[in-house]
Each structure stands twice: as C-alpha cells, then as structure tokens.
C-alpha cells in the first residue's frame, strides 16, 4: 500500500459552497393588513396599542405589554427623520440601490414609532429633523412589501 508523507505544510485550499434556503413567509393578519394597505390603497396604517401609541409599522402583538389587537389608524405619508445612515458604497445583493443612498428612520405624523426606509435623492440636505414624504412604486408594480413605498423624499 502506498503511504503518503505527513504534509508539513500545504497551500491553503478552500471550496466554494452556496447555502440557499428560500422561504415563502406568511405575512399574517397584522403585517399582512399593513402591507395590503401599501399595495392596494397607497395608505399607511398603524395600530394604536396601549402604552405605546400608534405603532407604524404595526406588529402582531404589543412589544410593550404583549397584548393583542388595537385600533387601526391611518397615519400621514409625511413625517420627520429621526435617524440617518448615509451609504456611500452600496453592498451588492443586499442594499436596495447601486447608487449612494441613505437608510432613515421616519416618524410619520400621527405615529408614535418610526418606520425604517430609504431616501435616494437630495442626500446633501438630509439630516435628523428633515421632513420627508413617502413616494410610491407605480400602480401594478406594488407587491405587498415594505418596498411598495419606493423611498421617502425630502419635502421642500
């Protein structure tokens, strides 16, 4: 039987492996209704829950006191930026743009929590405190996702 000498050193070897596991997730009663509002009505709905006020985007159960339910409330499509992260070099296959853009948190008028989204234009003027308004993906291209709001735009 042929014997092999013990390798003192070997060049680093590697193998490429892609692990992919696609899912089709149910959006559920609460998230689903919110997303249907974006897709079908171009409206932004929140859920008024005890101790937290109007939560936008709404969650299935209150994070504060674990209660279910609440009153659906339509909120404004305009609001104030509470946080800005300006991405200068977008990450391929992850970020929603190949051009510089910004992630933002926006507290819409009538809401008590902020929604995470993006701003693509007039980045030089964007800061915490800026007023922004939702811009919609065109009719027929809204799929019932958070990206049915195409982006937020600075209000002049």
């Amino acid at each position: 039987m042929k014997t092999f000498p013990k390798p003192a050193t070997i060049e680093p070897m590697s193998q490429r492996m892609t692990v992919a596991f696609p899912y089709k997730r149910s959006t559920g009663e609460i998230v689903g209704r919110f997303l249907a509002g974006l897709r079908d009505q171009k409206k932004i709905w929140g859920l008024r829950v005890s101790r937290q006020g109007v939560v936008v985007p709404p969650q299935s159960y209150s994070e504060v006191d674990a209660k279910a339910g609440g009153e659906w409330v339509e909120v404004s499509q305009t609001g104030v930026v509470t946080a800005v992260a300006e991405v200068t070099r977008p990450i391929e296959g992850l970020h929603p743009s190949t051009e510089p853009f910004a992630f933002v948190l926006v507290k819409l008028d009538g809401a008590d929590t902020a929604i995470a989204h993006v701003v693509r234009t007039k980045l030089d003027r964007l800061r915490v405190g800026s007023r922004v308004r939702a811009a919609w993906a065109p009719d027929g291209e809204r799929r019932g996702t958070i990206r049915d709001i195409e982006a937020f735009e600075i209000v002049d």
């Binding site: 992850l94 995470a116 958070i146």
Partner: peptide, 13 residues
Amino acid sequence: FYAAAIGLDAAST
C-alpha cells in the same frame, strides 16, 4: 418584513 427587507446591514444600523 420591515427591516431585513429594506437591506439593512449592521454598519448601517
């Protein structure tokens, strides 16, 4: 649905 779906990464958050 709300956070991962817009492409947030740890440096951005």
